[in-house]
Design a protein around this nucleic acid. Structure first.
Lengths: 205, 205
DNA sequence: TTGACAAGATACCGCTTGGTCGGTATCTTT
DNA sequence: AAAGATACCGACCAAGCGGTATCTTGTCAA
């Protein structure tokens, strides 16, 4: 039995996924406002008619990128690892260490997709802002929950407020990525994250 | 003797300054790429001919905004206060306290002009990037110098590396502003900066 | 007073943009 | 097999964009 995806001459789900992936790339490089539908179409060899069949407007396409690409990507890379480990200090240190070691060219060049969209779109469009805020809230909550659980387990200092510390850690992460991006320097990115790592370790009981 | 500025029907320096101010506002709201020359002209009631007399291209106008508005503004608000005080911990705590207390609607709504331009422009244009990096370098240097001086004076822990700590503090500041901006919440902004304040105080000898 | 140049005004241009629309091909249902 | 819905195609459009060319006006030194 040959899989249907090969046989079909039409594949709406794949088309939609292709558009999302291309739009994600375009937005990452140019920002949402400067993202060109023509360029997205060229990357995917999808027609304009097909695009407007799947997405009503450029705006909707952008929101779909936020919800279906940016959100899940961060969830996989941050929320899940935080949930697994019982010691949030060790987990965070590990995640940061991994980010430091595997500092990709993409993150130095284009920064954090979430942060990029926040700085560009949050004052301009309420739906973008709230979509981005949902991701941010989930991220901060995952970290706060991990810190609180760590306090229960006696791994984290009891005097630090998990919510506030989580807020600050997320802010610091975005700050480090942003600085490394402008410096176009893996070294600056690594040194900055290293200091954050030290801060995180200072929260240990 | 009536001041010349009032008598003149023409005032090229004032025209240039008006354009810079309007361009700064437009870029703060929309970003550089989406900034419209027409809107800038409408704000200033300057003609297009006059604009292109003072600035060769939109690009040049943007660079001038970076160098002549964004840079000096940050220098006044950050570099100078840091240079004055002998105790950098006290100075930084004070500056942060001031930011927390006087959290303006503008910073919550539009964020940090420097960070906005970094996230948007640094991957797209090398001249923008290096102009922004000059500001960043000066900021980090001012902070590192203050920390080093504080170590000499026995006010700052000797085991912290000034350069790295300065890098991290600047990153964290931008992160806090960015998060407050997307949350559109003075409270989140203040709580985030408050944690940074605690971090800064943990550097005291 | 006049000549030269800086400063400013305005009409215009080519191009790209997001979006539309009538039409066609394919897939599903009955 | 007929019919209806879904997926896709590509020419076209108005609007806004940054930028240019040509002209007039104000300023000031000689």
């Amino acid at each position: 039995m040959i899989p249907e995806s090969v046989k079909k001459t039409r594949n709406p789900e794949q088309t939609r996924a292709d558009l999302l992936a291309a739009a994600y790339g375009e937005v990452l490089e140019c920002g949402f406002q400067a993202a060109s539908l023509e360029r997205i179409l060229a990357k995917t060899s999808v027609s304009k008619g097909a695009l407007y069949h799947h997405f009503g407007t450029k705006h909707e396409l952008g929101l779909a990128v936020v919800e279906e690409v940016v959100g899940p990507q961060l969830a996989e890379r941050w929320f899940e690892p935080l949930r697994r480990d019982g010691d949030p200090i060790a987990a965070l240190t590990g995640i940061l260490e991994e980010k430091i070691q595997s500092a990709s060219e993409a993150i130095i060049r284009f920064g954090c997709p979430l942060n990029n969209l926040i700085q560009e779109m949050s004052p301009l469009d309420e739906r973008f802002r709230s979509g981005l805020q949902n991701i941010l809230d989930a991220w901060i909550k995952a970290m706060a929950d991990a810190l609180a659980a760590g306090q229960e387990a006696g791994k984290v200092r009891g005097d630090i407020p998990p919510q506030e510390a989580a807020l600050f850690i997320v802010a610091a992460i975005e700050g480090c990525v942003g600085l490394g991006k402008n410096a176009q320097s893996v070294d600056a990115y690594q040194r900055c994250l290293r200091q954050l790592q030290l801060y995180v370790q200072s929260l240990a009981a």
